[in-house]
Design a protein around this nucleic acid. Structure first.
Length: 508
RNA sequence: GCUCCGGUGGUGUAGCCCGGUCAAGCAUUCCGGCCUUUCGAGCCGGAGAUCGCGGGUUCAAAUCCCGCCCGGAGCACCA
């Protein structure tokens, strides 16, 4: 019988046997996308390159990616870079790298700033149809009028009058703040975004990609409407801080097809703000080591800590998206990460806060120890000559007369104890099931420092204790660990090797 | 303040549109047991939510209606 036939036979005759071995919980999936047809879905990742990519961008990006996969759709990476003052080259790259790291594959890429001429063209169309007018009020006046619901004196300008101002904006005759192109909306609308918002404005600042080529820039709502049309986007999935009424109005006026918009609440993590307002000062004031500090929620940060891209994907699948307010526990991410890591992480001996202990009459032994209790990850030899370093925490718990086992070596008995000094004696090699087992390091060892990242903030206050340091000794082999590798220090936790003899604690 | 959106165990989420099979499922967390030369993993079991509050409709409401409370977002010539 072939294996398949055996299985089949088994299933027929002993159904219960197979039921026990059957697959465990199936992977949770995102709910179906409304109004979606396989092959006709076009989604987009719309980052503004104004900062480093963080875990919030990651989750939102993953949701889009998951749906693109689910429906054999297309995915755009589209940089929303219409504010030259914000965009910086390194930030574009941060997102590309981040998405790549996450395993997100996008089909097309563009920057909105590449399409300014097209956006101008559509703006002219709006202008000619009388949906737009040039306003030369000061920003303060505009703000006040919008607040009070008063129409602007320029609202009744003819298209040709507005066009004149438009040309002046384009040519440079108008300076920044002196004129803008506003949407002819409804000043009495309860939705303030419909009260004649500026759709195009002058920004005299070189752009990261285009330098000084343009000075009239569309604002977000205009840009996004034109771009979603150009990209033929079918569904917008993004967080809720954007109000979409104005966009829908513009879309209709421009004759663009409707887009299905699905919004969800912004992701938040316990003790970890995602806003630049709270993160930037930490970097500037040197409270963290940089944007890639393992405490930071940036992609480079969580990566440094040892979070795997697959874990973020699994996490996203698990929590999905809702409009409800929430604060995720990091545990939810760690649990997924641990399941992925456990079968592939090599086990090493590391004793935090090491204490020296000698075993009298100790046999000199070299033992071969597996790197993993049940996976084939190789093995190494460790020799011992009776001098050991044990974790302080373990030594503190010892009482005279206790017998315990040095893992994979032999048993020892506590003969005497005074403070952290214990004298031990050889107590046989037999493996006793219920005997406590502790990890150890012999005379051949290497110092190791482990950084333990914690919550960055407590409320809105920086957590001074956010990065703990643990010093200890690891077995000699650990000195050869390559940076980037994630291991499990036995009974201590998973750690990512960051540099020779420096590890970062990932999680238990 | 105004507008919009939310409020299910410690955390996250399913269910709510189309009321009963929901004294509420799943994941995580915590506890206990088994297993294990790890305080990890795995397996088994358990704890934990009168579904924000109050009213109403109904034979029946987490699910429908009304009021209230609480939280978030928007109110830029930012995105």
């Amino acid at each position: 019988m072939t294996p398949a036939e055996q299985l089949d036979d088994l299933g027929r005759n002993y159904p219960d046997l197979l039921a026990v071995e059957g697959p465990k919980e199936e992977v949770k999936q995102l709910p179906p996308l409304p109004d979606a047809q396989k092959g006709k879905v076009v989604l987009r990742l719309p980052p503004e390159p104004s900062g480093y990519m963080h875990i919030g961008h990651a989750v939102a990006g993953l949701i889009n990616y998951l749906y693109a996969e689910m429906y054999d759709g297309a995915l755009w990476l589209r940089f929303e870079d219409t504010n030259p003052r914000n965009a910086r080259k390194e930030y574009y790259e941060s997102f590309r790298e981040g998405y790549r790291w996450l395993g997100i594959k996008w089909d097309h890429e563009k920057s909105v700033s590449d399409d300014l001429d097209i956006i101008y063209k559509h703006s002219r169309k709006l202008l000619e149809k009388g949906h737009l007018y040039a306003c030369t009020c000061s920003p303060e006046t505009v703000k006040k009028n919008r607040n009070d619901g008063l129409a602007c004196v320029h609202k009744d300008s003819s298209p040709s009058e507005s066009l004149e101002v438009w040309e002046a904006m384009m040519s440079g005759a108008k300076k920044e703040g002196e004129a803008s192109m506003r949407f002819k909306g409804d000043m009495s609308s309860l939705d303030p975004s419909l009260r004649d918002p500026a759709l195009l404005r002058i920004v005299d600042h070189p752009h990261a990609i285009h330098g000084a080529k343009y000075r009239v820039w569309p604002n977000y709502d205009l840009a996004v409407v034109v771009e979603d049309y150009l990209c033929a986007v079918s569904h917008i999935l993004r967080s809720m801080e954007f109000h979409v009424d104005l966009q829908n109005v513009l879309r209709r006026l421009l004759g663009f097809p409707d887009v299905k918009i699905i919004q969800f609440s912004r992701v938040k993590f316990e003790g970890t703000p995602l806003s630049k307002r709270l993160l930037r000062p930490l970097v500037q004031e040197g409270l963290v080591q940089g944007w890639d500090d393992p405490r930071m929620p940036t992609i480079v940060g969580v990566r440094k800590k040892g979070i795997l891209p697959e874990a973020l994907l699994g996490f996203t699948r698990e929590v999905g998206y809702t409009k409800a307010e929430h604060v995720f526990d990091w545990d939810l991410v760690y649990a997924v990460n641990r399941k992925i890591l456990d079968p592939v992480a090599k086990r090493y001996f590391f004793v935090p806060n090491h204490v020296k202990a000698e075993v009298v009459d100790a046999p000199h032994l070299t033992v071969r120890i597996r790197y993993h209790p049940d996976k084939e990850l190789g093995e190494r030899d460790i020799s011992s000559k009776g001098v050991f370093y044990l974790a302080k925490e373990d030594v503190e718990k010892m009482k005279v007369g206790d017998v315990f086992r040095l893992i994979d070596l032999y048993n020892v008995k506590v003969d005497a104890k005074s403070g952290d000094k214990v004298s031990l004696s050889f107590a046989g090699k037999d493996l006793v099931r219920e005997m406590p087992k502790i990890q150890w390091v012999g005379e051949e060892n290497t110092v190791f420092k482990v950084l333990v990242p914690g919550h960055l903030y407590i409320g809105e206050v920086f957590n001074q204790q956010s990065l703990a340091e643990v010093h200890g000794l690891a077995e000699k082999e650990a000195a050869n660990l390559k940076s980037g590798e994630i291991v499990q220090f036995l009974r201590f936790g998973f750690c990512r090797i960051d540099a020779p003899n420096l590890a970062i604690f990932t999680h238990k």
